[in-house]
């Protein structure tokens, strides 16, 4: 068994809104092993991004607050650290790549300066050393003419280049864990392929663990070895990537796969897709019982009345669905023991 680098237990995040308290994350249990690449998949509003922000202590408080649970990073609970302790870890041991390279770079500083900042902060380098290192990092992420590019401002770079700068910044301090929240969503497919190849290559070279948040089952297939599928703030299926793609078990996961257009075969004509009916319920309209039951083709009486626990099917696979009811060893109860 690999060592665990990140162990999330019972993580619950709530937001206070004028309409009441919204539970954006509901008792999430997840582990990322050393060297693992975990993908968190789900549609908008399922809590993927809140999960990443909760781990890093970046939930704006108020209105949000992590109300329960632990996030053990190398054995220490991130949620109980002071802001100072967290700052020593963020951008150093754990770094994050955000979706929008346009908004996550500071427009008034040269990119070299921005990459150098974590190096000066965490590694105690002086400005000259840090800028030299920044140039080296730009070269590593495949930016041509790095000695000129360190002096560029973000607006002088294309979207793909900016995302490379973000990656260079995230890698500056050789993090043990890299969180990437939809890193390629704003990019063209050709640039997406370049960035995902780069991430895989860098992870291989540095041995960093990765956590990728994405809605794209194609991107996830190429990056991860484990997948967590989220729906309405909860994990509904957890499996090895190969296992999940070979045989998705939760009706929601199955629905996601059926919604994907398949590459066209030799015959012409169009076969209709099988979408999931309805839409993801709003955070205040989550139904009782299993939150997926109103959209589920296989729902039965029990699904409407009682929420299923995450059933452990062995082999690192668990499913939150009454169709897969096994004798109780739910992950939640195990963790508390």
């Amino acid at each position: 068994m690999v060592d665990t680098i990140l162990d999330i237990r019972g993580l619950t995040t709530r937001f206070a809104t004028p309409r009441g308290v919204a539970k954006a994350l509901d008792t999430v249990n997840l582990t990322v092993g050393q060297g693992d690449a975990l993908a968190v998949v789900g549609e908008s509003g399922c809590g993927k991004t809140v999960l990443a922000l909760s781990i890093l202590g970046l939930i704006p408080d108020p209105p949000g607050r992590v109300t329960e649970g632990q996030a053990l990073f190398q054995g220490r609970d991130l949620l109980r650290m002071s802001e100072q302790e967290l700052q020593a870890i963020r951008g150093n041991k754990i770094s994050m790549i955000f979706q929008e390279p346009m908004t996550s770079l500071n427009p008034v500083f040269r990119v070299g300066r921005q990459i150098a900042e974590p190096l000066m902060l965490h590694r105690g380098m002086n400005e000259t050393e840090a800028l030299e290192q920044a140039e080296e990092l730009l070269d590593q992420v495949g930016i041509p003419h790095p000695h000129m590019r360190v002096r560029s401002f973000p607006h002088e770079l294309s979207g793909g280049m900016r995302q490379r700068v973000m990656i260079a910044m995230a890698l500056a301090c050789e993090p043990d864990l890299l969180l990437a929240d939809e890193p390629t969503t704003a990019l063209d497919v050709t640039i997406q392929a370049q960035i995902m190849n780069l991430l895989a290559e860098l992870r291989e070279r540095t041995g960093a663990s990765g956590m990728l948040i994405s809605h794209d089952l194609g991107v996830v297939a190429g990056f991860s070895n484990r997948v967590a599928v989220m729906y309405a703030g909860r994990i509904v299926e957890l499996a090895s990537t190969v296992g999940l793609y070979a045989e998705p078990l939760h009706p929601y996961t199955q629905g996601l796969f059926h919604s994907l257009p398949r590459p066209p075969g030799k015959k012409s004509g169009i076969t209709a897709l099988t979408p999931i009916p309805g839409a993801v319920p709003g955070i205040f309209d989550r139904p009782a019982g299993c939150t997926f039951h109103p959209r589920c083709r296989r729902a039965f009486a029990r699904c409407r009345g009682q929420e299923p626990p995450l059933f452990d099917l062995g082999n690192g696979r668990s499913v939150r669905c009454w169709l897969h009811e096994t004798t109780p060893p739910a992950v939640e109860s195990q963790d508390k023991a």
């Binding site: 294309s158 050709t190 392929a193 370049q194 190849n197 194609g218 297939a221 190429g222 991860s224």
Partner: peptide, 21 residues
């Protein structure tokens, strides 16, 4: 080639294209 394939067993094809538009 750049289209990600929803199949983890598919071999990752090298991206033949460099640079931006």
């Amino acid at each position: 080639t750049a289209v990600p394939v929803a199949d983890p067993t598919a071999t990752i094809r090298p991206m033949p294209l460099r640079g931006d538009l």
